[in-house]
Amino acid sequence: MADFNLNCKGLQCPGPIVQVFKTAKEAQSGDIINVKVTDRGFIKDIQAWCKKTGNELKELNETETEIQVKIQKK
C-alpha cells in the first residue's frame, strides 16, 4: 500500500479538493492520502467528499492556521 502526501497549503478552494480527487483516481484501494491545507473550506469539502465516495476520513486535525487530514481509499 502506498502513501500519498499532498501539500496543498496556499491553495484556495477548490484547489485542495481537486488535488485529492485526482490523487484518489490514481490510488489503489487501501492507499493512504495525507493532505495539508490552509483553506478552511476544505474541512466541509473533505467530509462531504468522503461521505459521497465511501473513502474513509481517518484523521482530521485543525489548528488556527492549518488543517491536516488522512484519508484511506476504499
Binding site: P14, V18, A48
Partner: peptide
C-alpha cells in the same frame, strides 16, 4: 460551472 470534484461533493 465549478470543477467536477466540487460538483460531486455538493
Amino acid at each position: 460551472i465549478r470543477d467536477e470534484a466540487s460538483y460531486l461533493i455538493r
